[in-house]
Design a protein around this nucleic acid. Sequence first.
DNA 1: GTCCGTTTGTGATAAATTTCACGATCAGGG
DNA 2: CCCTGATCGTGAAATTTATCACAAACGGAC
Lengths: 210, 210
Amino acid sequence: MDHNIPDPSVRRLSAYLRQLERLAGEGTRHVSSRQLAGYIKAGDAQVRRDLALFGQFGRRGVGYEVDDLINVLRTILGTRQRQWPVVVVGAGEICHALLTYRGFRQRGFDVVAAFDIDPKKIGRTIGGVDVLPMEDCAPVIQRLEVRLAILAVPADAADETARRLCECGIEGILNFATTGLEVPEGVFVSEADITSHLEQLSFRLTSHRP
Amino acid sequence: MDHNIPDPSVRRLSAYLRQLERLAGEGTRHVSSRQLAGYIKAGDAQVRRDLALFGQFGRRGVGYEVDDLINVLRTILGTRQRQWPVVVVGAGEICHALLTYRGFRQRGFDVVAAFDIDPKKIGRTIGGVDVLPMEDCAPVIQRLEVRLAILAVPADAADETARRLCECGIEGILNFATTGLEVPEGVFVSEADITSHLEQLSFRLTSHRP
DNA sequence: GTCCGTTTGTGATAAATTTCACGATCAGGG
DNA sequence: CCCTGATCGTGAAATTTATCACAAACGGAC
Ligand SMILES: NC(=O)c1ccc[n+]([C@@H]2O[C@H](COP(=O)([O-])OP(=O)(O)OC[C@H]3O[C@@H](n4cnc5c(N)ncnc54)[C@H](O)[C@@H]3O)[C@@H](O)[C@H]2O)c1
Ligand SMILES: NC(=O)c1ccc[n+]([C@@H]2O[C@H](COP(=O)([O-])OP(=O)(O)OC[C@H]3O[C@@H](n4cnc5c(N)ncnc54)[C@H](O)[C@@H]3O)[C@@H](O)[C@H]2O)c1
């Protein structure tokens, strides 16, 4: 398959999938690139281009079949064939929200364990998931073949913890800490810094209004 | 000031600020564009370009003074002059994490209230913030001149709730729900869908490894 | 005061992403 | 069977974004 898919395209593919799942829930059978584009801030050509990076999935004059396209997108994003086991590191507030969230499963992700260094947290079960000591991190990750981790530790522990996770074989990190992580080649990081999102909104409201 | 600052630049400005705050905490006085670029995945020219969109803040042969640049970036992002009051809508798990988080204040944001429709949630105080009934939404937003809202309601209530917030005068929405929102012209939305982040990582681990 | 190594700011260039535009294809109806 | 209106897929063009590369400016050494 082709290399070098742009990040913005992947983000949009995920957004298309969200809309398609909603449409499927409403019983809609077909959808056009124009409709799909309407939900996102994008043009119809953009939608077709994004999909064209991976093949031909529509029918001219008709559009796309919703169920088909859902399967296609899940296959592209990697959440169709497999259920990804995920670990959360740092059993604080964010972790609590993640472990009680019921939506990950049906989207292809399965939180299998949480880790912490605080003895007061260790041993608890949150949303059916055990909070384990950090020492168990390596064996659990290796035994369950976990490749994705969510990092939810305080900022000053983030870089060190990320390094440790990479040593255990983790290949993708979703980072909630407010630090840019330094990770080895071949490890992907997705930044979920909430403050950064607020700053982007603040910026748009601050500069140059019409 | 110039219009049309690209989104990726704003994201990076926020990331630079994060690193600068860390450097300031460590007592570092000066930093070069090359150093700053090292923390992010970017080149040094990129850093200078991003800053050049707003003016000249460095000294040739020397670099940037950390404290100065922090102030510059806060001014650009709009978090220097004012403390932004923010409301959270949907007093669930995510909301709980947000209200107990102590980091927003020092970054220029102040969560002033949370809203919910569930009588069991209303009347509580979480992290010093009151959970109010949705009916109080409009008056509170107007009295405190709130322009930013964080949306943390279930997906099927998101669009309707967003519409309501916009009617109250909200101009920026940080959306945790898994739906693309439809908002009026002039309202900015920042998507914080956690599942989407996981899907992006899953995609990178799935296709075309070298 | 001059030289030297360093680093910024920016015009020019390259690369990437998005949009345009149109031929090809399809379903439905007369 | 052929026409009509709709929609995809995609080469080409336009636009946006990132990189290169170098003159200008700076601090420090001597
Ligand atoms: N809660 C929010 O709304 C929010 C908002 C923005 C950013 N963040 C960031 O997200 C991260 C997590 O936030 P939170 O509110 O869940 O924090 P928290 O303080 O509630 O939880 C952090 C947890 O990490 C554990 N921990 C500390 N050091 C560790 C280590 N070295 N290894 C393993 N576990 C360790 C602590 O014991 C604690 O349980 C922080 O970096 C925070 O800055 C949170
Ligand atoms: N918790 C997570 O880890 C997680 C992960 C990914 C996405 N999300 C999304 O974030 C959003 C919030 O998640 P959560 O876990 O906090 O949900 P939650 O169910 O814990 O809380 C939702 C809250 O919203 C309130 N609510 C429902 N309808 C409302 C309305 N019309 N107006 C005002 N309040 C209303 C409910 O009473 C409840 O208190 C959801 O859309 C969820 O899909 C959450």
